[in-house]
Design a protein around this nucleic acid. Structure first.
Lengths: 122, 122
DNA sequence: CTGAATCCCTGCCGATACTG
DNA sequence: CAGTATCGGCAGGGATTCAG
């Protein structure tokens, strides 16, 4: 959805056309960000990659209860969102490395903000 | 899920027991925050309330395509999460006012962080 | 080793109708 | 005015199986 954080300094310019909508809009930046993080396991995969480049089976070992299907889905989703890059290495056995893009690394502060809010007493 | 924003200054203490899990955990602060914002329309309702106290029908007018059912669900969900308070006013016709709690108002920076990330070029 | 395809089940959301 | 009850469609996620 589209947002203006009204009354919250500094606040974004109200001239942004993606603001002031009355329904969920896929081009709203907040929607884009939440879409990138959407789905079970997604943030755990990102957290793992914040620790550095990983291979497919390394991710599987780090998250043993995550199924192949969902891991594939998440990696595809995150690649689509421009968060991770996928690099096939030639040779045998075939190996693939996953790493955060610069944009993906900028999710660090976002996850921190979410953590801080969730950690504060309700 | 539980997160440690590894490699991102300042970073949280790694002693937090809610970190370093290998599966989605409901008590992880990031999970808590995402759960509060989960579901369609949720952030739009919050954004509306960031502009100040609102009544039920004011919210309906601001978000005309949001059904009664989902609006009720969202307000209940946000109240459960400690984000909004619900105040019935005596008299006729019955009126109810919804407002953000202090905790809810702290979602401003969180939504800002999400906006900023989503607005940055991928 | 690194995935994609399939099956099934569950939970979310929207529409409609009804109540205090 | 401020909701709740009910139903149906669809997408998400887990287990298993198959493929490059």
């Amino acid at each position: 959805m589209t947002h203006r954080t009204v009354g919250h300094p500094p606040g974004l310019p109200d001239h942004d056309p993606r603001a002031r909508v009355d329904a969920p809009a896929p081009d709203c930046p907040v929607e884009i960000a939440l879409a990138a993080l959407r789905g079970r396991w997604t943030t755990l995969v990102v957290r793992e990659l914040l620790g550095g480049e990983r291979g497919y089976s390394e991710l599987r070992r780090a998250l043993p209860r995550l199924s192949d299907k969902v891991l594939s889905e998440r990696l595809a989703q995150l690649a689509e969102a421009g968060v991770v890059t996928r690099v096939r290495r030639p040779g045998w056995p075939p190996t693939v490395r996953y790493a955060l893009t610069p944009h993906g690394r900028r999710l660090g502060p976002v996850l921190q903000a979410l953590w801080d809010w969730g950690a504060a007493a309700g």
